[in-house]
């Protein structure tokens, strides 16, 4: 609710008249008046806000100033695409990132570690719109293996998902490496070694399980931000998600669209964070004990 109020106030406070950008500077005053009535911007701020909340309570998000289409319906159509893309990117980023990070931690200081570190720095330094275009050129225009853009069957998602996953994989790899190096220094790993556990058991049971906690935080944050729409990736690959929808809304000052996308996006972000907290609870007994002690 407070998010609704603040974003609503901020958006309304921004300069720029939606009516003017809708009809152009040269429209006659009568048209402007008519459209103002239609989208309700002739009323004062409070009644506009209350009207919007009323809509929300009815489960609606209002209509686009431009297309007159129901914003809630449009978002319902586009949001699954965004979820699909975010999910696809994570399916690629998580295993690759963790593997790269762990292998470079195991070979710490040796050639592979240095190579992996440079690859990871490269990954977080990539402009996604550029690597997306390069991948598109190579795989769809040069090799003709995959379709260049659009939304459709599984072949359409591969390139955008890879593009989106690269920076995430790189940052996961960096965090995985430092976490693992931290954990190896801990006394319980020495105990495990002293007990004569096999290296493989130490790696999977002790190190991996402990390393998962910071990694899940990072993965949750990345996933949450992808649910807010990957504007650049969606633009390049013509992916029909809410990132592109919202950007067009911003540029055209189509406030119902921007509000709707922001609300859905932030709600998704909050939900993901709750899910991450629940996973902590499951993974880390210490969290459980602290809570029951309270």
């Amino acid at each position: 609710m407070s998010i609704t109020f603040i974003t609503f106030a901020l958006i309304k406070a921004l300069p720029g008249d939606p009516v003017l950008s809708l009809v152009g500077e040269r429209a006659n005053p009568e048209t402007i008046e008519r459209i103002k009535k239609q989208i309700g911007s002739d009323k004062d701020f409070l009644s506009q806000f209350l009207g919007y909340v009323g809509l929300l309570l009815k489960g609606e998000l209002g209509r686009s100033h431009y297309t007159q289409r129901d914003v809630a319906k449009d978002i319902m159509e586009k949001f699954p695409n965004t979820i699909e893309l975010a999910f696809g990117a994570m399916v690629i980023a998580v295993p690759f990132g963790i593997m790269l990070g762990f292998i470079s931690a195991i070979y710490r200081g040796r050639f592979f570690d240095r190579l992996a570190s440079i690859i990871a720095v490269g990954g977080i330094s990539l402009p996604v719109f550029w690597i997306g275009l390069i991948l598109m050129y190579f795989f769809s225009l040069y090799l003709k293996w995959l379709p260049p853009s659009g939304t459709g069957d599984i072949r359409f998602i591969i390139l955008p998902a890879i593009t989106l996953s690269l920076p995430a994989a790189a940052s996961i790899a960096r965090v995985a490496r430092t976490t693992m190096l931290d954990i190896v220094e801990q006394p319980f790993i020495k105990t495990a070694k002293a007990k004569g556990l096999k290296n493989r058991d130490i790696l999977f049971k002790h190190i991996l399980k402990n390393a998962l906690i910071p990694l899940i935080t990072l993965i949750g944050l990345d996933f949450g931000s992808y649910l807010n729409g990957a504007v650049l990736t969606e633009t390049i690959f013509g992916w029909d998600g809410i990132g592109r929808f919202m950007m067009e809304g911003i540029i055209k000052r189509d406030y119902p669209v921007v509000m709707g996308c922001l609300l859905v996006g932030t709600s998704a972000f909050v939900l993901i964070n709750i899910a991450v907290d629940m996973i902590y609870h499951y993974l880390d007994p210490r969290v459980r004990i602290n809570e029951s002690a309270k």
Partner: peptide
């Protein structure tokens, strides 16, 4: 509040104004 916005979209919003 500022940090909770998707940062690129916030930047886009401001450069449109």
């Amino acid at each position: 509040l500022v940090l909770s916005f998707p940062s690129l979209l916030l930047a886009i919003g401001i450069s449109v104004i």
